[in-house]
């Protein structure tokens, strides 16, 4: 009781002792941050409003704060595009398989290494950390995967990812610090095997970190194009990012076919605007998942980052 009052007094004093300098300082900080938020959000906002606007208005520079001539045509055009839809389907399948495989491997690696009583733990840890700093490089990896292991297409793309040591360390730190070791000991005294402990004790208590690491892996798989570029030769298996690269960056207009639009200039204009819709469509899956995971996010990341 007495302590609470003292604390209140201190708090009250601190608030009332906000000098004029402090108020000016905080105002400047808030203005700076608001400006920064604006700079970061505006390009994204512009992409969204442009994607809902008529091509002519965007190209003419009329779309600045609000969409002009609200339309869904740009999106309709995207949905009609076979390549994009195929890419979407492939990327989703890769996303699900990849995230599951990576999480499976990472958990199986992190849990034993989180156990203090595991003989050889430090040695295994070093074995896992070395690849973080030294890798074979592009060609040795490519030759190993395609020639020695004879893996191609999706198998290669998925397996080359595997365990990220950084994520594994975050997970291991979480197992070590957030789950009391006594809990595991108690379960083992009651006759639980290590596999049983993992499934019944560790996993239910680790939802936050599993979600966060899953998000890391998922975003990585969804957004990367390089391993698909070198390992996937069959165009029917291309993930979305490769088609995007073709349309957005290499400006391959044939992929966005206007159909009825006859003259070149108008077609180029349309293609340019459709790109905005494509950007939105390609980013939405990751941005939609994010708020659901965000509540676990701070907890999971903080634990890993402070001690890992």
């Amino acid at each position: 009781m007495a302590q609470a009052t003292t604390r209140q007094v201190i708090k009250h004093r601190r608030n009332s002792r906000q000098s004029r300098g402090d108020i000016v300082f905080e105002t400047i900080v808030i203005i700076l941050l608001a400006l920064l938020a604006l700079v970061i959000i505006y390009p994204l906002y512009f992409v969204v409003i442009a994607s809902f606007s008529e091509a002519k208005a965007v190209v003419g520079g009329d779309v600045i704060f609000l969409p002009k001539g609200l339309t869904l045509d740009n999106y309709m055009e995207c949905f009609k595009n076979g390549d994009l839809m195929l890419g979407y389907k492939n990327a989703f399948i890769l996303l699900i398989i990849g995230t599951a495989v990576y999480l499976f491997l990472t958990i199986l690696c992190a849990y034993p290494l989180s156990r203090r009583d595991l003989w050889g733990r430090n040695g295994i840890m070093i074995f896992c950390t070395i690849p973080m700093f030294f890798g074979g490089g592009l060609i040795p990896t490519y030759l190993t995967v395609t020639k020695t292991l004879n893996l191609h297409n999706w198998a290669a793309v998925i397996l080359v990812g595997g365990v990220s040591t950084y994520n594994m360390i975050i997970m291991r730190t979480f197992f070590q610090t957030s789950i009391p070791f006594e809990l595991q000991e108690a379960a083992e005294i009651d006759g639980s095997t290590p596999f049983g402990t993992l499934i019944r004790i560790i996993l239910p208590l680790s939802i936050p970190v599993i979600c966060v690491i899953g998000l890391y892996y998922g975003v990585g798989i969804w957004n990367s194009y390089f391993s698909a570029l070198i390992y996937v030769s069959d165009k029917n298996l291309w993930p979305l990012q490769l088609f995007l690269r073709q349309i957005l960056v290499n400006a391959d207009l044939s992929a966005v076919d206007g159909g009825d639009v006859a003259d070149m200039a108008r077609r180029a204009m349309r293609a340019e605007i459709i790109k905005y819709a494509i950007c939105v469509l390609a980013s939405i899956p990751m941005l939609v998942i994010y708020p659901f995971i965000q509540r676990y996010f701070v907890k999971g990341v903080m634990i890993g980052s402070v001690k890992g």
Partner: peptide, 28 residues
Amino acid sequence: NWQFYVMLILPLLWYVLFCYLPMYGVVL
């Protein structure tokens, strides 16, 4: 603790195949 070592088989196999084999490939 033998089951822990069983758990480690797959991840460590992955490390060997996809990190250490390419590392050896550096002799190229």
